[in-house]
Every structure is written in C-alpha cells, then in structure tokens.
Amino acid sequence: MCNCGKKRTAFKQQRIVDPHLPAVVPQQNSLQSIQPVKTVMFQYTGNTALSVIGNVTRKSYRFGFPGDIQHIALNDVAGMAAIPVLKRI
C-alpha cells in the first residue's frame, strides 16, 4: 500500500526558511488586548466565611474570615451589593 499521501502532506507542512530574509516574529495579540480590570472593594461582615461566584464574570470570590476585603470586578458589583453580609468600601 502506498503512503504517498502522507509524504505529500508532510512536505506541504514543512517551513521553507530563506537565510536572506528577516525572521518574522509572531505578535502576541492576546497580550496587547488585555486591559486592566477595574475593581471595587467589598468587606465581609458575616460570622464565618463566604464564597461567591460573580454573576457576570463567573469569577469565584472567597471571603475567608469576618472583615476580609476582596477586590470585585466592576461587572460583578451589582450582584455583590445585593448580598446583605457584603459592604462596599
């Protein structure tokens, strides 16, 4: 059985490097498009600990002890404000 198709495919996937041409460095578009996330601080006023998942970002926030302060993404602030044991500071 002939495996000519595999050789053809392998040949097409090879890169041809010309030493006379400048090297091309791929740009990292994902790093250029990252913007800092704006946050709001919330303090936990409950008695034990609390874990909350942001309603928009789906990020998990963990308040480990009474008085713990966490930075909450701006998109999740409305949902956090509705929790009675969290106080915006």
Rank of each mutant, 00 (worst) to 15 (best):
N55D: 15
Q32H: 11
L21M: 14
L74P: 01
Q13C: 02
Y61S: 07
S33N: 02
K12S: 00
C2S: 14
V52G: 02
M41Q: 14
I89W: 02
R8K: 11
A78K: 14
D76C: 05
Q70W: 01
L31G: 02
D76M: 05
N3S: 09
Q28E: 12
H71C: 09
S51M: 10
F42A: 08
V56F: 06
A49T: 07
I16C: 03
A49F: 03
V52I: 11
K59C: 07
V52F: 03
A73V: 06
L74C: 06
I72W: 05
Q35R: 13
Q13K: 15
T48N: 13
Q13I: 00
P22W: 06
I89P: 02
A23H: 07
F11V: 00
P22M: 03
T39E: 07
I16G: 00
R58Y: 08
C2M: 04
K6T: 01
Y61M: 06
K38F: 06
A10T: 03
G79D: 11
V37T: 13
I89L: 14
I72G: 08
T45L: 13
L21R: 15
I53M: 10
H20C: 04
A78L: 13
P22E: 07
K87N: 04
A73E: 11
F63Y: 13
N3A: 07
G5C: 02
Q14G: 00
N3F: 05
Q28K: 14
V77N: 04
V77M: 03
G67E: 06
A73S: 14
G46F: 02
H20K: 14
S51R: 13
D18K: 05
K87E: 14
F63L: 10
R88F: 02
H71P: 11
N3T: 10
S51G: 08
V17L: 15
F63H: 07
T48Y: 12
S51K: 14
I83D: 07
R15V: 06
P36A: 09
A81M: 15
N3I: 08
T9R: 00
N47K: 10
F63D: 08
K38C: 04
G64K: 12
N75G: 06
F65C: 07
Q27L: 13
I16S: 04
T9G: 00
H71T: 03
R15S: 07
K59V: 13
C4A: 10
R58N: 10
T57S: 15
A82N: 10
R62H: 14
R88S: 10
H20G: 05
P84T: 09
D18W: 05
H71V: 00
K59Q: 14
S60F: 01
V37E: 13
Q32I: 11
P36S: 08
P66Y: 04
A81P: 06
Q43T: 13
I89Y: 07
V17W: 08
A49S: 15
G46Y: 03
D68E: 10
R8N: 05
P22T: 06
L21P: 08
